[in-house]
Simulated assay, not measured.
Amino acid sequence: MTTHQFSYGGKSLPVTVLGLGPMGQALAGAFLDSGHPTTVWNRTPGKADSLAARGAARAGSVAEAVAAGPLTVVCVIDYEAVHAIVDSAADALRGRTLVNLTADSPDQARAMAAWAAAHGIDYLDGAITTPTNTIGGPHAAILYSGPDDVYATHRTALTALGGTGVHLGTDPGRAAAYDVALLDIFWTTMSGVVHAFALARAEGIDPTALAPFAQAGMGALPGIVGGYADRIAAGEHPGDRSSILSASAGMEHVVRTARARGIDTEVLGAARDIVRRAVDDGHGGEGFSRMSELLMNDLPIRRPGKLSRVH
């Protein structure tokens, strides 16, 4: 670990926050509320006004901001933006800790960790899995990955962000891997939600009339997710309750109805086509959880002009 042994006479650890979009402002506000001397920087200085009014120190440059204490937290749109901010301040960050709460891919996280190591910067990658309004409260959920000792050093300060902080291990890409998997669930689900409302409206159904039935149906999802996880972990996919074949039929009903009403079916149509191929390959009688393995290893993926398999 390269972090300097800073001492503040028992006072709360000074923290720097880079990037003051909605999430960055929430993070800085949570540190302020917990009594941490907080320095902030944003490319557009005016975004720091409300935090400065609450006691945050406004830095004139990134280097000045990170020099204010041993812990810097950055949260911006992607890792390209992170590099645009911190690359010029690498010397100032040397011997300090950078916690990157920006969402991006696991490979980007690992590359960022390698960059930090090359510059003598302790590094934690993280993923915020709850909205801005949860930050600082009991329902916040933040995942971290990176060296155990770096997380242990700053764990107390990071509790200011509220809720549950979970360290997933030393692989710097692990938090991002969890994040993209969870985002996969969320955005695939939300795509289905807006498509369902479009289909309902085309049939003259008021969205507010459909919503209670949709909410009741989605209430079963936590149990389904847990059950599928168990089946996938065990490699067992019984189709006694619901099979890939029946899923294919259900998807076809939706696609046919939507097309008849002139509604785009590209998303569900693509999913239906993959399920059909699983049936054609002889997996129709298995449970739908089997699709997770087929997507990884066995299922032919047809692209324009060629046939390939996922590896």
Rank of each mutant, 00 (worst) to 15 (best):
R231L: 10
V76W: 11
A92Y: 00
P172N: 13
V62I: 12
V275M: 15
E293V: 05
A65R: 06
H139N: 11
T44M: 00
L199N: 04
L295Q: 13
G219D: 13
F186T: 12
I205A: 06
D148V: 08
A198Q: 10
Q5E: 15
V193E: 15
P222V: 08
V180L: 09
A152L: 09
T2N: 15
Y8I: 00
A56N: 01
L71V: 06
A278D: 03
A270W: 06
A52E: 13
T188Y: 12
Y144G: 00
A160L: 05
A202F: 06
A68C: 04
G9T: 01
D264Y: 03
A67L: 06
R303F: 00
P106L: 02
E64S: 04
L32Q: 12
L32N: 15
N42C: 08
A67N: 10
T129S: 10
T159N: 07
P106D: 07
A233Q: 12
Y8S: 03
A56R: 00
A176W: 03
Y178S: 02
A278S: 14
L307A: 09
L27H: 04
D125L: 06
V76N: 02
G46Q: 15
G169Q: 11
A53V: 06
H36V: 04
L18Q: 01
S88N: 08
P22R: 11
Y144N: 00
I77L: 15
G29T: 14
H167C: 02
A176F: 04
T189Q: 14
L294W: 01
A52H: 10
S7H: 15
D264H: 14
N42F: 05
G29L: 13
P304I: 12
G136T: 05
G162D: 03
A270M: 14
G282D: 07
A152G: 04
I185N: 05
L245A: 15
T3F: 11
I263H: 07
V74R: 02
D240S: 05
I205T: 13
G226R: 09
L299A: 04
G46S: 13
I121K: 01
K47I: 00
S145A: 07
A30C: 10
V194L: 12
D264G: 11
A233N: 14
I205L: 11
P238E: 10
T134C: 05
L98M: 10
P172W: 08
V279H: 14
T39D: 06
A89C: 07
A234S: 09
L168K: 05
I224N: 05
G136C: 03
H83W: 10
A198F: 03
G284T: 15
S34R: 12
D78C: 13
A63L: 01
A211V: 00
L13A: 09
R277Q: 10
A92H: 08
G120M: 01
R302E: 03
A140S: 02
T72S: 09
D179A: 01
L32Y: 11
A175S: 13
W41E: 06
A114L: 05
R241L: 13
G126C: 02
F197T: 11
A258N: 15
A160P: 00
M112N: 05
